[in-house]
Amino acid sequence: MTELTPADERFVAFDLDDTVREQAELDGHTVEQLSDYLDRGRVPADPRIDDSPECEIALRGLERLRRARQALLARDLERESLRADDWVASILDNITLEAHAGRDIPLTHPSPTARLVVTEGALRGILRETGDSMQNMFVGRCVLVGDVSVPGTPILIRVDVTVFPGENIPLLAERLRQAMYAALSRYTELVVAAIDITVSDLHALPDVSVREMER
């Protein structure tokens, strides 16, 4: 184990080896307990901690450590963001559509030696792109329900959509449905019985998750 000099008296609470002394100096608490308390946002409030001057000093130290940790992360992330973009390309070059191709959906051709198919993944792509061409919504998951392997079998399509605030949802959903019908009939031979669109509101502003990352 690494050699560490005993803590300065002033910081006896942070003694690395002696839990008894640590607790004695922190009104019966440990640094771990205080750290967890801080992680919980100091709720529910614990008067035995809040009213202890010794704990308060330790908590301030832990808070300072947390701020330094956040600053360090922010600095590191900033450095990363200055990097050239080629790392993204090298990741994308190394993945294949194979993983999400899904089922094969047959296309007709007169020759007996022909086996022509369009993948489920390609069809989902058509549905997504159709949604992307419309404004103020995001198309999420697209599911093809039914036996797509038998030509002519009517299938059901389920689509999740997130709509920006203030939009007329029924109108937008109907326009999307018509556009998807049109795209499917143009590019595929599927018999589509229905397109179910589930709409949810976009509650949070879009950049929330990015901000959360820097927390």
């Binding site: 992330l77 990741i91 994308l92 993945i95 899904g102 989902r124 792509g125 997504r128 999420g140 929330v208």
Partner: peptide, 27 residues
């Protein structure tokens, strides 16, 4: 787009959505 939309689209095979996730969390 929110993480959920991106994750679902990427699970459906959408490379563009996946790329956004790569840029968002890669660093």
């Amino acid at each position: 787009a929110a993480d959920q939309v991106l994750a679902e689209r990427a699970a459906d095979g959408d490379l563009r959505a996946f790329e956004v996730l790569v840029r968002r969390y890669g660093p």
